[in-house]
Nucleic acid binder design. Structure first.
Lengths: 125, 125
DNA sequence: TAAGGAGCTTACAAAATTGTAATCATGAAA
DNA sequence: TTTCATGATTACAATTTTGTAAGCTCCTTA
């Protein structure tokens, strides 16, 4: 999937934090660049690879495939392949994946609050 | 604070996502390695630099100072300096910072759920 | 005058993430 | 037999994040 150096201080710190803090653990699973947005689209309905690619606009096929593979590995979604040609593959959130919805909504709500707050307090440069 | 290349595809994608998705925006502010744990300690009470350093165990002074500075810039916390020698500085969450508490709790709760789920479904290698 | 403690800051290096471009497998259809 | 579309994978490069080690600035006390 990707090569990481297990013995690096970086990894050791990451593991330590994910061990003592479930929030850090959760972010380790879903905190990378595109995953939140992939989730955002899939929460309404299953979508196929090309649909996601188009919806996400500027994502590359590599990043999309990589993120989907990690999300499948982490049981956030299910990959369903139809034996057709050309290939058809759909991605669907699992129950544990869907369970993120309310957390995401809350996080987004906090984000909006924070953005508004910064706009209101225009005193900073 | 840190040098980023504003014209990179990386930055452009980041900005784009943070623009259309408030969750991504929120993660941009609080999603890095140590911030969650710093928050975790500060939510109970203000703490000084050295206390945080000790609590976080393996964090370096550089990373702690860097993260605290970013969190201050983003109005998550307030830095209070006492005119003493040796210096005494305490860090305290702002209201908007504290408002993250319930989101974090929920995220952590999801994380635990997810971890348990993986342990229960031991069928994967 | 030297040492010391708290809270940083700096230059540098390692590691991880993200992006680019090219290629691949399938099997139907031209 | 070549072409086509979909859903990838690969080798590589750029960018960003994280860590290392040293030093700096107060002012106080020895």
């Amino acid at each position: 999937m990707k090569k990481i150096k297990l013995s690096s201080t970086n990894q050791i710190n990451k593991n330590y934090l994910e061990d003592i803090c479930m929030g850090a653990y959760a972010l380790g699973i879903i905190g990378s660049r595109w995953k939140l947005s992939i989730f955002f689209y899939l929460k309404d309905r299953p979508m196929r690879f090309s649909e996601l690619k188009q919806s996400l606009g500027s994502i590359t096929e590599r990043m999309l495939a990589l993120n989907l593979a990690e999300m499948e590995r982490d049981k956030l979604l299910t990959r369903i392949v139809f034996a057709e040609v050309p290939a058809r593959v759909i991605y669907e959130l699992t129950p544990i994946g869907k369970a993120l919805t309310s957390v995401w909504d809350q996080l987004g709500s906090w984000g909006r609050q924070h953005k508004d707050f910064l706009l209101t307090n225009v005193s900073d440069g």
